[in-house]
Amino acid sequence: MRVYVPLTLSSLAELHRTEKLGPVPLTAYAVTPALREWYLSGNEEELEYAALNRAAAASLRLVAAEPGVARRRVVAAADVPDRAAVADPDQALLVEALGEVRLTEPVPLHALASVHVDAAEAEPDVRAAADALGAADQGDDDARFVVDGAADHELLWYGVQEIDRLV
């Protein structure tokens, strides 16, 4: 199963150093039955893109929680055994949890397919979005607009062999 793991640049550096994502459980995003049901008309590529975007939104929350980290969203795409990615059936139909899975096994570096990272020019918008998350969560429409601004930036694709250059 392809999963998308939200990270920060500092956790990407840790992955590079230890050659694995962990400790478990880890939150990731994947094409789950609930995500398929939500995006009825989506083909497989569109569903994968939706899971990637869910992980990018989760990465923004990680960036906001870590004040000293670079203001860039990071998502690692990895192929894991189906048994290692478990969706919570109680959360599966909640919109905010669509596609969310818990990884029950550490993800070795060799299981990564790619890494997706914001370009440097996205940093001001990601910084503003991270700063506005709290107000957006409280229902502030202006803050929600700022948070959505980060999602306007497409994450860049990098091969696993390029991680050392990113960190």
Rank of each mutant, 00 (worst) to 15 (best):
D125K: 09
G149A: 09
L109A: 09
D118N: 09
D137Y: 12
G139T: 06
V146S: 00
Q138F: 13
A119T: 08
P108R: 14
A150N: 03
G134V: 07
A128H: 04
D118I: 04
V147R: 00
D141T: 14
A129D: 04
A132E: 02
A136G: 07
R127W: 04
D141R: 14
A111W: 08
A111L: 08
A130R: 00
A129T: 01
H116K: 05
E121R: 12
E105Q: 13
P108H: 13
L112F: 09
G134S: 14
A129Q: 06
E121V: 12
D131Y: 07
V115G: 02
R127F: 06
L133R: 00
A151Q: 13
R127E: 13
P124W: 07
A130D: 05
A113P: 03
P106R: 12
A135S: 14
L112H: 07
D118S: 07
V126P: 03
P106G: 11
V107R: 01
A130Q: 02
D131C: 01
Q138N: 15
A135I: 05
A128E: 07
G139A: 05
R127I: 00
A130N: 02
D141K: 13
H110P: 04
P108N: 12
P108F: 09
S114L: 12
E121H: 10
E121P: 02
V147K: 00
P124H: 09
V126Y: 05
L112S: 09
A143I: 01
D137I: 03
A130H: 02
L112K: 09
P124K: 10
D142T: 14
L109T: 11
A136R: 04
A132I: 01
A143W: 00
D140V: 03
G134N: 09
A151L: 10
G134C: 05
A143G: 01
A119S: 12
P124L: 09
D142H: 15
A122C: 09
P108S: 13
R144I: 06
A119M: 06
V117G: 01
A129H: 04
A111F: 06
A151M: 11
